[in-house]
């Protein structure tokens, strides 16, 4: 736990060529190991862009991201892929391969560790298979291992997504609005998985959330984006009514999710 933090983001800027949208403006912050950091902000404020700039699914326009002292933004693409193994990602719309089995989906989390020729033939090592079953057990889906992914409910699919991210044995988990496609009860149970992972595996979690109540409940720290700029960085308890209005605009009203 160095001074500069586990993950450090400096002057990060992203401009989308198409349509010339400035999605992130000169963003800087750092995250300590084991933190549960929640990113909030209005729709279109740049949350997804931020998360994807960290593992460079989207190339940042300028600025730098460094993980454990390694500058991610300047890595050549082959080293970048190795870097990505250490950063699991969970998606809003699950992004599962819907026609493949749950097990195959989970195993794809090991692709970064598997030689390309082996993975072309669909071979994963025995250890990988065991790890996959363990990850599935962790999210309570070991029975569904051989079911096609699109036969699962939304909550189950997201759990598969989590198991897939766990397969990478990451030190950082990037989570993009994991529950906005789910109902409130399922949302809570999904968030509890992240909490458990965060606490027992000491994996740093960086998640964007739409519901402030969930952010308050699970986050150890909250940052807020507005129009691609950092407008708040602090503890969940620091967000009072005026802060809230500042982030979400004057007309917003807080909704509770339990």
């Amino acid at each position: 736990m160095e001074q500069s933090g586990h993950l450090a983001i400096k002057n990060l800027t992203k401009v989308y060529e198409r349509g010339q949208v400035v999605a992130l403006k000169d963003l800087s912050f750092s995250v300590k190991k084991g933190e549960f950091l929640v990113v909030i902000g209005l729709s279109g404020s740049g949350k997804s862009t931020l998360l994807r700039c960290i593992n460079r699914l989207i190339e940042p326009t300028s600025g730098s991201v460094s993980l454990d002292g390694v500058d991610v933004t300047s890595l050549p693409s082959s080293r970048m892929r190795r870097m990505r193994r250490g950063m699991g990602m969970v998606f809003q719309h699950f992004n599962l391969i819907s026609r493949s089995t749950v097990l195959t989906n989970v195993l794809t989390g090991r692709l970064g560790y598997t030689p390309v020729w082996k993975s072309m033939a669909g071979w994963f090592s025995k250890a990988d298979h065991e790890l996959a079953m363990k990850s599935l057990e962790r999210v309570g889906l070991e029975e569904k291992a051989y079911v096609r992914a699109d036969e699962l409910s939304g909550g189950q699919q997201q759990r598969v997504g989590i198991a897939r991210a766990l397969m990478q044995q990451p030190s950082l988990l990037l989570v993009d609005e994991p529950v906005s496609a789910l109902d409130p009860a399922t949302s809570n149970s999904i968030m509890q998985y992240f909490e458990e992972i965060n606490q027992s595996d000491d994996i740093t979690v960086l998640t964007s959330l739409h519901f402030l109540s969930l952010a308050r409940r699970y986050g150890t720290r909250i940052i807020a984006l507005k129009g691609g700029e950092l407008v708040f960085d602090g503890l969940p308890s620091d967000i009072d009514d005026s802060r809230f209005k500042e982030i979400y605009g004057e007309e917003a009203e807080e909704v509770e999710v339990r």
């Binding site: 699914l57 082959s78 992004n95 599962l96 493949s100 090991r110 970064g112 072309m120 897939r164």
Partner: peptide, 18 residues
């Protein structure tokens, strides 16, 4: 799905395959 595979460290061929 291709985004997910890339995020897991998959390369070009792995993205196509999976």
């Amino acid at each position: 799905p291709s985004e997910a595979i890339r995020a897991a460290g998959g390369n070009f061929f792995q993205v196509i395959r999976y």
